[in-house]
Structure formats: C-alpha cells, structure tokens
Design a binder for these strands. Sequence first.
DNA 1: TGTTAGCACTCGTCAAGCGAGAGTGCTAAT
DNA 2: ATTAGCACTCTCGCTTGACGAGTGCTAACA
Lengths: 351, 351
Amino acid sequence: MDLSERQLQILQAIITDYVENAEPVGSRSIAKKYDLGVSPATIRNEMSDLEEMGYLTHPHTSAGRVPSDKAYRLYVNELMKKKNLSAKDKRMINERLVASRDEFDRTIRHAAELLSEITHLASFAMTPATNQETISFIRLLPVDERTLILMIVGDSGNVTNTTLRLNSPYTQESLDLLSKNMTVSYKGRTLDDVLKNEIAEDVGSDIEALSQLKGNVMPSFLRTLEDMLNVNLYMEGMTNIFNLPEYTSIDRARDFMELFARKDWFTQKMLARDNGVVVTIGEENAVMKDCTLITATYHVDGKLVGKIGVIGPTRMKYDEITSIMEYLTNNLSESFKLPGSSGDGNAGKDE
Amino acid sequence: MDLSERQLQILQAIITDYVENAEPVGSRSIAKKYDLGVSPATIRNEMSDLEEMGYLTHPHTSAGRVPSDKAYRLYVNELMKKKNLSAKDKRMINERLVASRDEFDRTIRHAAELLSEITHLASFAMTPATNQETISFIRLLPVDERTLILMIVGDSGNVTNTTLRLNSPYTQESLDLLSKNMTVSYKGRTLDDVLKNEIAEDVGSDIEALSQLKGNVMPSFLRTLEDMLNVNLYMEGMTNIFNLPEYTSIDRARDFMELFARKDWFTQKMLARDNGVVVTIGEENAVMKDCTLITATYHVDGKLVGKIGVIGPTRMKYDEITSIMEYLTNNLSESFKLPGSSGDGNAGKDE
DNA sequence: TGTTAGCACTCGTCAAGCGAGAGTGCTAAT
DNA sequence: ATTAGCACTCTCGCTTGACGAGTGCTAACA
C-alpha cells in the first residue's frame, strides 16, 4: 500500500525535524513549522496511520513520533534529494586533502580525519584490499654477507620490501637463482593464493646452498605477503559522538567505543560491503544495530578499491553526508591515479 | 610533622578500603574490619587530624573520608610493600607474551594488550625513541631503470628501506656515487641531527646526473628518516574504564577517551618522563589531572628505551600494578637482547 | 467523506517534602 | 588519652502533586 502525497510530506517533515532536534515531534509543531495547510488533528490522524504502517514509533503514549528505520530507508531511497556541498565544506576538502601516492597511508588517514571533522561524526578509512593483486616479480638484493633485502612487486606497482638477517652467509649466485626461482613460481598468482597454498609446498631443491637459503627466506616472504594483504584501518573522531544526545547513556557510549577495540572484526565487516555509496540503517547493519553506517569507495589506478565510512546514530543528515562522501571519494580516486596516466589509469605502466 | 604509627595504620586502612570499594570510608567500618584496638571515636579524631594535614578529604559533612593525592603519594613512597605476582598473572605473562625481535611492533602491542587485560585498566606501549640513534651507512639499490630502493642502516642494527620511483632513468654509476656520498656525509650523525639540519644544506654537486638524482632522492630520504624517528604508540583496553564507578559520568569518560584522539600529544608527554617505574598521581601528572599514570621502561639491546604504561583513576592497586609492570618490562628487555648476545647486548654485532 | 475543534486522558518531568541511614563532631565521663 | 553518647548534617530514595506536551476520540462542520 503506497503512501499518499500528504503522508510523504508529513513523514518528510517529521524526519527533518527529528534529525535536527533529536526530540520526538508532535502534530502541533509540524503544523506550525511546515506549511502543509492542514490542522494538527489531521496530521495526528495521518501520523497514526504512518505508525500503523511501521514508519513511526512512539516512545510512550503522550510523546511525539520518532521515525523508524523503515522511514529513514524510505527517505534515503525516495524522498532524499541530492544536496550540493556547501562552499565551506568543498573548500575545506580541496584545501586540506593533500593526497599523495607516496604517503598513501597518511593521506587515507587524513581523509578520515577530514570526514569526521566535516560531519561531526565518527569516521574511518581503509587502505585498499589487495587480495586480488598478483605478483609481478620477486627480487633479492644483497646488503652485506648476512643481510639481504626481499622485495615483492605487485602488478599494480605496489612494492613492498623487508630486510632479512640470516644466521649464516649466503652466496651471490644462490641469491640470483632464488630470485628467478621464486619469480617463476609466483608470478601471476594472487597474494591470497600464494599465502594459502605455500605452506604445504615443498621447499626442496637440488642445490644445497639454494635450499638452505630458501628455507631462511620463506618465513619472511610469507610474513611480508601477509603485511601486503593487511588492510589498514584508521578510525577518527570517535569522541564526536559524546556530543550527541543519543549517547549520553554510558552504556551506548561504551558499546560504540568498543568498535575501537575490535578493529580486525570491523575491518572484515567493512570489506564485505558492496562498492559505491552504501547506506545501512539500524537493524539493516551487522555492526551496530542502532547506528547508521555509510560507506563509499575510492579507487587506486582505477583498480584497487579502498573504503571510507561514517558511523553515527540513525538520526543523521543523509543527504549532506552522502554528498560529502561522494565528493571526497572522487577526489581521492582522482589523486590516486598513476602519475602521467590520464584516462583509466593503465597508461604509462610497463614492466 | 610526622605521622604517628597509629595514624599510618589508619591511613593505610582507609586507602586499602577505598581502593577496594570506591566508597568513602567511615570510622566505624574501619574499627570493625581492621583490628586496631581502638574505638571509632578515636579513629574519628585521628581522621580529623589526617584531614587537617591534607591526607584525607571529605565529599560532604556526613560522608566518610577519601584519600587525597598526597595520601597515595605517601602510600607509594613509604607504606607500600612490594607485592609478589599472583601465580595466575605470572603464568599469563609467560605464556602469552611471545616476544620476537622480528615482529617488534606486534610484540609491543601485544604487551599493551596483556597489561590492560591483567590490570583491567587502560594501558599503552611505545616503541623505543630512536632520536639518539646514529646512521651507519646508506645504500641505494637498483630495481629497474626508474625504480630504486633506499636503505638506511642505523648503529643499533635498525634497518629501514623505501622504494622510490623516479620520473626519469638513472645510471648505475650515479647510484653508487650517491650511496658513498651520502654515507660519508651522514655516517655517525644522529637521525635527529640530520633531519633538523639537512633541509638547509646545499644539494649541489659537480656532476649533473648525480645532482639530479640527489635532488630526487633527498625528499624520500628525509621522509624515511622521519619514519625511523617516529615512535609508535599502541593504546589498549581504553573501554575498561567504563566498568569503573569513577567513570559513570559521561564527561569524565569523554575526557578519558580524548586521549585516544591525541596520540601525538600523549606520546610527547610520555617521552618526557623519566626511565624506570614512574608513578604520577592526580595533580602531579600533566596528562590527566584526575588520573594516575604509571610508566615503566624496557630496553632493546640494553640501549634503546621504550615505555609501557597504565592509566586509571588515582584509586588503584599500586602495589600489584607496579609489580606487574616491573615483571613485564623485565621480560621484554630479556626478549629484546640481540640474538646470541649474553651480557650487555653488544656482542655479535659487527658491520 | 474528509477535516477540524474540543476535550478527556496518559505519561514524563520537575520540585518539594519526608524519613531513614550513615557518619561526623562535640562534650562529658572514664 | 580514650571512649560513649548524642545532636547535627547531609545524601538518597520515595512519594506526591502540579504542569506540560501530546495523543485519541467524538461530534460537528463543509
């Protein structure tokens, strides 16, 4: 059963008012503030119907109405109009977001800070998931007779390296051989794949020196792969929620803060979300049943996908926040194109 | 004016009781629980004197007494007896603290987790400050015609490296030359020194190619030094404080949580503290005036110094917590000795 | 038939008042 | 110097009553 035009207007008014004031809104105040051309009594009747349909709830008999998750969902899907960023917010992002590929993590973290500053909510940002990245080549570089650098180059140009110190000296030949050896074995395979299957694989080799070197290198190799796979999560502005009336109860505040302590879990949940701007409201979301979570994705070289997000009470300015996040992720994606590339981010890439 | 034996006993009893129950303690309950052989009235008189001397305070006329910062200070300095770790805590540390030099940061973080789990308070751990570390040598390693690895080796064996991608190709000779060049310039100088003075120094060189390469490398070099200097701070168990009666007020809880958001500032404050086990109570400490902060130091190779710490209300079990921290830092220091070294951690080190 | 005015009713909040309980501080007796 | 006794103070929990906000229903109206 569809809602009438008037019901939609009333619902919209209630949502607007409640988002603003965080207090149950009554029929009279709607009639006064929003010019709907009907009396409070009529509004009351409509409200009663809306409540029956599940769009509104009632804290207690004589309180005003509060929008339900379902109402917000309707609002986000149908009623919400795209909002233009305020000049102030736009300027803030343009001036303060100094994105640089070289300092990837710092940029990401910065974006999260900015996001929480603008929205006055808690926010986070994650570096891209790299489990679909494939290995281009592996190289071992000599440092001194017992020290070497292990370098892994991924297909998106992602380069990671670690320094290893062995218990015994190695030879230059075995180093070169192992480099080739490993490159042949792993080239084109995804990090995920290698990490999961490599433990079982045999390390054996004909040449004694090589075999020994490989035995020394493999643990570091696997650990480095793991590091490459790790998604970094930065959470910012968690304490912002203390300013919101819904978090004056210690218990809710505590629950919220627990997110901080469960970063790994949270990261997993966020990785599982779809790309693009995604809004999950209240019960819809698996993280905090009484919060709304909005995530958006940015791209690196038009390929790898990272996420940023905002967490707050279901009562939030959906239109503004989604616009801000869209703008911000577009900016990030633009900054993270390969240098010199113009279009899809694949030009100028050759190994 | 010194305290009498009886006054000390009473003070001790009040502290013990208050630490346990978090409620103002009255004369009657002390007389009952602790066998001091005097009546409540006598205790009342003594309490009154103790209050006059500043060891106790009075929330209001008809409440019991609460120990002041000064009382805790006296307790920590004079009254407190070293406590043996409970077998349970000892076992927990021994079993769960898998310290490994290779995964330094993870170990440190783990230590913080453990500490907050045992003490049920908020805790933190910092990686060592490296500002006194000196540079041993610098090396540039070729990867492909535009990519190279910059490696900086410190005197304590600390190795850091970054991958650089240049806009234009470089030559092998200029690479070798620059490596030597930089090593000569920076060998023996502290990271701090180089970082502070290098921006001013002239990049100029006779050879054009070298000069250009150097211009490309220097920014990364400086940034990498900065990374080496950065102390990592891990905070754990912040939400533990929600279980304490002193943090049922949202405002205090918020103030506490703000620490999370001010990690840089916090790190600076912690670096400024003395080594060893340091207890600062309430007003004594510059971080949170109504908290107690206990820090302790661990050593790496008997040289670099990192810190772990506990933050909580002034009402805490000083004896237990200091013992735990001492035990934990000893364990860490032991684990972070150079492999193969026995005594001062300087054997087996040769470049 | 949809809309509205009127009114009784419900519920939460706030302030005031009261009694109980805990603890002190003083005084006088030991 | 210590202690028993007692008046006094203050908090806490409970109840009460007034007030305000808001609803839901009914009857009148266009």
